[in-house]
Each structure stands twice: as structure tokens, then as C-alpha cells.
Write a protein that binds this DNA or RNA. Structure first.
Lengths: 345, 345
DNA sequence: CTGAAAGCGCTTACAG
DNA sequence: CTGAAAGCGCTTACAG
């Protein structure tokens, strides 16, 4: 259908090598007379020539195409604005450099290296990379530049660079905030199918550590795991738990808990303080607005994309692992422990 | 780095044609002795062979790669769960068929056809396709199977298939609902930089038509265009507008208006009824929960992906344009016009 | 300043 | 049942 270099060469009466040089070679190397060059360009335009990138890539051994791997891809819709921010961040960098972004299906540790090493990708950004020997080995087999986004530090595969937020520090901010408000009975809320996620693991362990540092023990009853819809909130509350505050692993889950509370007539924050994690614009729209740890996901995504591009161009990374600091956005879902709540009916 | 067919051929003592046949040919055409075949497979495995997809694609003229075009890509983070649902829908179909999804940078009408026709894509899903002669021509030039998602019916490029939701019908549901509640002073709220978007155009024209059909005129003052943050709400309300209900073009913008209202002490829905559009799970988390038109975006996305796959396989589409019906999810942000509000201070 | 030729890794008629 | 050869469209030494 499309015209090829050969077509142009014939139409312009030159060799295909000459056409290629004129159309794509770096300025300095073009040693073709002005007139010839102009003529070739005209013919190419007239024939509506579009270079076949596949052929070029095959020849050059580069694709200008980056892969994006999600574990738990199915639940992209779960993290309100989190993924959207991440996308924006990654694509803003990649597109500026004329790269494309390809979403990959979930990678099978056994056969997945073929998806990565088949010549279609210059590199890969791997979200929530989960420790797995097979995967590590696969990645090494694929010999593909890789940036792991939000991965446990101990799980970063060799020859990859890790970019993450400070989950431990974030948890500490939460515990600080809540204890300063007088709360000592704090529960951590996880989400079903997310317990194995690097982020939730990091936040939970940070929570336990920070509590312990303040002389507060964390028991089994202080760690809750609820379904996506957080419907367990109602029965949990009915049991009159001692907790006066909840640290919920992410923004999306926190918003659903807020909803359940509202429906059940539980007053947030008077009866129960709630803190979440991520703090995108979404946290402003909940009722009450959600106090949450602010993770700079957009900047992290931009950074990850830049690091990957450097990796691809052969640079040795300055650091094997980069951790972004987090802050706490205090909004309306937390308040000082009131007397009324202490005498919980 | 990776082993090639030639390497295997040499190691196995056969021709590369034979290797290719054993490894990839359709079952029927393999005419190689069992033992030889087995031996070749062993060698391939031992050498960690991964076929180079680029080379195969170049030869076969197919890529198993679909492009996704957003106009206004930058604002993907704006539509709360809308894009996430869409992604899930598209990828669930594509991945099952071993296709990949590549996000494309915004397409330049003048040069963009090169992005599409460069041999990397088997087809394209184009979101919010905007009428544009250059683009139409470009698409024809590229000669690429195309599905336009949520495009005005009149703008669907020739040789593409349109998949959209019934924006007009949705607007009618809104007007029905509000007028049944006694509202006659209804304003439509658009969003800056979205006025030219097919969806907002469709919803606005549906609003005007439905109002007119009920003998209600729509004046200039009844059509508002607010910034992303909807901060204009406060000054608008301060002017004591006659309106008792707002029809806001989408869910995200509606949620921000709700937030402004809450901050400004305007009671929704007692003082003002608010209706949005999209109605993903996000509409449940706002305060109050948002009454909104439900657009089955996930199913639409799945449908679009399936149609595209059919187009690619050469099937003639049953229809040039498919419109999905919408429904209205009545939640807490609308209520019957109360006496108190009529006597608006 | 320009062209003939080889090659990226694969697949597919074609011949034997 | 198997292999030699051509070719997908491009680029890059190399020769002239």
C-alpha cells in the first residue's frame, strides 16, 4: 500500500541508499547535492512516503517503545486518580522524547520473558513489582532496562532501578499525627488481594514500627483486611471496637470506608478519625475531605521515565534505588480524640 | 544477545526454514519427523530462544498492536474513573486475543498520519475524535482500521466505526428527572477546554432540545462554562441566579462543584439540585452521592475493541455507528423543589 | 558526491 | 520430509 524507499528511488532516479540518506541521515553525513536532495524530498512527499518503522527498528535494534507492566492490572479502576496521575507523568516524559508507551498484559513469570525480550521494547516500567525468583531471572534473561515503580527495596531485581515513595516515613507521619491528636487505639486497614502489594506491606510495617517506637503495641485485632467495597466496616463497628482512628492503606479504600460510615450514621471524624494514603485531588472530594499522606506520584512517574531513558542510552544509574519523601495533607477526616468518643456506647 | 533462528539451525544441524516451521508453523503444515522436531525444540529451549517479533511482523505485515488516541490526553486525570474503566474494557478484550495496546501521543493532523501508518499498528481506537478535514484525510491515507469512541455521529470519519453513548437521550433523562421534581430553571455547566468535546456538545444540544420540547427556553445565562476547579461556582451563586438545578457535563466536574458548594455552605440538594454524567463508582463517593446519567463505558470499550478486531480481520462491520443506551442513577444530589428554595434570599 | 551490496531475523513459496 | 533462496523495508559500511 504505502510507498517504499525503493519506489522513491526509482521515481527519483537514484539509489535507495541515497534516498535513505537524504530522508533520515543525520545532517552532517549528507553528502548529496542540494538539488538532488530537494528533488528526492519532493518525490517522497508526492508519493506520500511514510517510513516503515518496523524495518528501521529491525535494522537499528531500537524501538522507541517502552512497556508498562501492572500487576493487578484488573484493578486499575480501584485507585481513583493514582493511575491517571502516573500515566500523565510517564507519558509526558516519553512523548516529549518521541517514545511510545505500550501497556503489557500481566506477565507470566514462566513465559513472560518472551513478552519482554521479543525485540519490541527498549525498556520497561514495572509497577508494584512483586518479589519472585522466576521473574528476576526472567528479567535478567530479557536483559532489558527496567525501572521498578513502588517496589519493596528488598525486591528490586538486580540491574533494575527502583523508584518508590517513602511508605515507612508516611506511616510515621500518620502515627505522629494521630497520637498528637490523642489517639492510641489505631487500626490499620488493608484491602483484600492487596495484602501482598509492596505499598501495603511497606505501610503496614511502617505503622507497626512507629507504633512500637511510641510504646504502643499492635495486636492482631489492630490489623483489618476488608473487601474492595469495605462492607465489613459496619459489622466491625457494631462490635464496638476500642479503636478511635483508622489508618487505611490507600485513598480509594479510605473513600469507601467514609461512604460506609456515612451510610451507617457513624460520624467522621467525631466518632472515628480516618487517614488514607496517596492524597490526589480525589481526597478533596470525599466527605469529609480525607486526611492523607501525599505521595508525589506524578513526579515519581516522570522521574522513573527519565531514569529509564538514561538507562536505555547506556548511562550507569547514579543510584540503584530512589525514595521520594512524602508529606501529610491534614483535612477534615481527623480530629482530636473527644471525650464523647472515649465513652463509646 | 538473543539467539536467532540461524543459531538454532546451526546447533541442531538443520536449515533455518525447518526451525521456523517446527517452532511456529500451523500444525497441519509441519512435515518434519517427530524426532527432528523434538530435537529442534530442545535446542531452542536450551539456547533460550525468543523469536524477534519485529522481524516476524515485518515479514507478515501484521503487528498485533493496537493504538489508542486521546485528544486532550493531558486531562486523563480529570475524569475520575472514566478512563480507568475504559482501559479495563479495552485491554480485557485485546489481551485475551494477544494484542497489545499502545498509547499514542496526541496526533498532529498535518503530520500525524505518519504515526499511524508507519507499520507499527494494526488498528486504532480514537477517543473523542474531533471533526477535522485534515484528520479525516490523514486517516484515509493511513488506511488503518479505526473505531471512534464517543464521537459526534456527524464527525465519524469514513471507513471508521463509531461507538458512542446516547448523549441526547441522557440529557433527556436529566431534564425529565428534574422537571418531574418541579425544576424549570435549569442551567447546563460546561468545562473550559471541553466545550469542543463531542460529549459535551452532545449533552448540551440534548439539554436544549429537551428543554424546548417541554416549552422551557434556554438562554445564554443558562449555559455556564467553568474552569477545571469550578471556583466560579461561588461568585455565580453570590449573584443569586434563578436556577434551582444544575446539569453538569460530567462526573468529575460535578464532584468539584459539590465540593465548592459544601465549602460555601450551600446545601445540596436542598438549595440546589445537581446532576452529573458518567456515574462510575466515583459518583457514590461524593457528598452527597451524585445523581448521574450512567454511561456503560466499560461495555462500550469492550465493544469497541471487538469491533476493531473484526475490522482488522477483514470483516465488513454490520453498522457504521453504534449507540449505547444510558440510564439515570438517582442518588442524593437531587430533590423536589422545596418552598424554602423558591423564596431564595 | 553517489551506488551496489550485505544484512537485521524472520517466513514462505518453490524445488527436490 | 527437508533445504536453498528470495524477500519484508530499511540502514550502513564500503567502494568508487
Amino acid at each position: 500500500m504505502g510507498a517504499t524507499i525503493k519506489d522513491i528511488a526509482k521515481a527519483a532516479g537514484v539509489s535507495s541508499a541515497t534516498v535513505s540518506k537524504v530522508l533520515h541521515d543525520s545532517g552532517a553525513n549528507i553528502r548529496v547535492s542540494k538539488e538532488r536532495a530537494e528533488h528526492i524530498r519532493e518525490v517522497a512527499h508526492k508519493l506520500n512516503y511514510v517510513p516503515n518503522v518496523l524495518a528501521r527498528n529491525l535494522r537499528k535494534g531500537a524501538t522507541r517503545n517502552i512497556g508498562l507492566v501492572f500487576e493487578n492490572f484488573g484493578s486499575i479502576a480501584a485507585g481513583p486518580l493514582y493511575y491517571a496521575e502516573m500515566f500523565d507523568g510517564i507519558t509526558s516524559v516519553l512523548f516529549a522524547e518521541h517514545y511510545r508507551l505500550t501497556i503489557l498484559p500481566e506477565i507470566d513469570p514462566d513465559t513472560g520473558h518472551k513478552e519482554l525480550a521479543n525485540g519490541q521494547l527498549d525498556g520497561v516500567i514495572w509497577c508494584k513489582f512483586v518479589e519472585n525468583q522466576a521473574t528476576n531471572q526472567m528479567l535478567r534473561k530479557a536483559a532489558l532496562p527496567c525501572v521498578a515503580l513502588n517496589t519493596l527495596e528488598t525486591n528490586v531485581p538486580p540491574n533494575a532501578v527502583s523508584v518508590m515513595c517513602d511508605n515507612l516515613g508516611g506511616a510515621e507521619l500518620v502515627v505522629d499525627h494521630l497520637t498528637q491528636l490523642g489517639h492510641t487505639q489505631i487500626a490499620f486497614v488493608n484491602e483484600i488481594r492487596e495484602e501482598e502489594t509492596p505499598d501495603s506491606i511497606g505501610r503496614l510495617s511502617g505503622f507497626i514500627r512507629s507504633m512500637n517506637e511510641r510504646g504502643l503495641a499492635v495486636h492482631q485485632d489492630d490489623i483489618l483486611t476488608w473487601s474492595f467495597e469495605a462492607t465489613e466496616f459496619v459489622s466491625w463497628w457494631a462490635k464496638k471496637p476500642p479503636h478511635t482512628a483508622l489508618f487505611i492503606w490507600n485513598e480509594g479504600q479510605a473513600s469507601r470506608v467514609l461512604r460506609r460510615a456515612l451510610d451507617a450514621g457513624v460520624e467522621i471524624p467525631r466518632e472515628l478519625s480516618v487517614v488514607g494514603f496517596d492524597s490526589t485531588a480525589f481526597s478533596e472530594t470525599t466527605h469529609p475531605p480525607l486526611t492523607a499522606v501525599n505521595q508525589p506520584i506524578r513526579e515519581m512517574a516522570r522521574y522513573a521515565a527519565n531514569v529509564l531513558l538514561n538507562l536505555i542510552s547506556g548511562q550507569v544509574p547514579e543510584s540503584h534505588s530512589v525514595t521520594f519523601p512524602v508529606t501529610l495533607d491534614v483535612r477534615g477526616s481527623t480530629q482530636a480524640l473527644t471525650q464523647s468518643r472515649v465513652s463509646n456506647p
